[in-house]
C-alpha cells in the first residue's frame, strides 16, 4: 500500500489537540473562559443591564490570554525542540504552520460566542435585581465587528510569535503595545499620525463600532498588514527555509 499525503484536516486535528494537551495550554484556555464569565457577571452586578455591554467586558480576559495561547502554540515547537519530530512527519512546514494558526482563531470566535451567551441570563438577572428594563438590541454589525476585532488581536499574537519564535518577547510586545502606542500618540503630530495608522487598538475602533468607512478601512488594512499579515508571512517563510536541529 502506498501512503497518501497527510490531509490538511488531519494536521488541523493534531494541532488543535496540541493546543490543550499540555498543562500550560489547558490552564490558559480554562482561565480565559473562566475569567470571561467572571467579567460578564461582574459587569452585570455593577452596570446597567445591557446585553452587549456585559458580553463586551469579556474582551479584557479574552484579548489578554488568547494572544498568549496563540504565541505559545506557534513557538512551542522551538522551545521544546519538538519541531525535530513534527517536521520529519510533515516536511511541508507551511502546512503545519497554517494548521497551527487556525485553532487559536477558532477558539477566539468560540470565546466571544460563549461571552455573548453567558451575558443573556446575566442581563435578565441584573435587570430583575436592579428592577430596570434590560436592553437587548444591538446592531449586528457591532457584534460581528467585535468578534472580528478579537480575532485580529489573537492574530497579532500569531504574527509576533511566528516572526520572533520567542514566546517571552512576543508576549511582551503584544501586551505592552496598548500602553506603548498611547505614549507614541502623545508625542506630537507625527506620533498621532503614526498611531492613527499603526495602532491596532485605534484602527479597530471603527470596526468595533460597526461603522467602517473608506478611510478607516484603509487604516485598518495597513495596521493589519504591519502586525499580522507581514509577520505571519515572514515567519512562515523563515521557518520553511530554516535549518532545524
Amino acid at each position: 500500500m502506498t501512503p497518501i499525503d497527510i490531509p490538511f484536516t488531519r494536521l488541523l486535528r493534531v494541532e488543535t489537540r496540541k493546543l490543550f494537551d499540555t498543562r500550560s495550554g489547558l490552564i490558559l484556555a480554562v482561565s480565559a473562559i473562566g475569567l470571561a464569565l467572571v467579567a460578564v457577571v461582574a459587569r452585570g452586578l455593577t452596570s446597567e443591564p445591557r446585553w452587549f455591554t456585559l458580553a463586551g467586558t469579556a474582551a479584557i480576559p479574552l484579548g489578554t490570554l488568547l494572544p498568549v495561547l496563540a504565541i505559545l502554540t506557534v513557538t512551542g515547537e522551538w522551545r521544546h525542540r519538538t519541531a525535530l519530530t513534527t517536521f520529519v512527519l510533515e516536511p511541508r512546514r507551511g502546512r503545519v504552520l497554517a494548521a497551527k494558526c487556525l485553532p487559536p482563531l477558532a477558539v477566539t470566535v468560540a470565546g466571544c460566542v460563549f461571552a455573548l451567551l453567558a451575558a443573556l441570563p446575566m442581563t435578565a438577572v441584573a435587570a430583575a435585581v436592579h428592577g430596570v428594563e434590560a436592553t437587548w438590541t444591538v446592531a449586528p454589525a457591532k457584534v460581528l465587528g467585535w468578534i472580528a476585532t478579537m480575532v485580529l488581536v489573537t492574530g497579532q499574537g500569531l504574527g509576533m510569535g511566528l516572526a520572533l519564535l520567542n514566546a517571552p518577547a512576543a508576549i511582551v510586545i503584544c501586551l505592552a503595545s496598548t500602553a506603548l502606542w498611547s505614549t507614541v500618540a502623545r508625542l506630537g503630530d507625527m506620533g498621532a499620525i503614526l498611531a492613527g495608522w499603526l495602532d491596532l487598538n485605534l484602527t479597530t475602533n471603527p470596526l468595533m463600532n460597526g461603522g467602517l468607512t473608506g478611510d478607516a478601512a484603509l487604516r485598518l488594512t495597513v495596521s493589519v498588514f504591519v502586525w499580522i499579515v507581514v509577520p505571519v508571512a515572514a515567519g512562515i517563510l523563515r521557518i520553511s527555509r530554516k535549518e532545524i536541529g
Binding site: T22, H80, A83
Partner: peptide
C-alpha cells in the same frame, strides 16, 4: 533524531 526533543508536559 533526539530522544530529548519532547514536550516535558505530555
Amino acid at each position: 533524531l533526539d530522544a530529548g526533543a519532547l514536550h516535558p508536559g505530555r
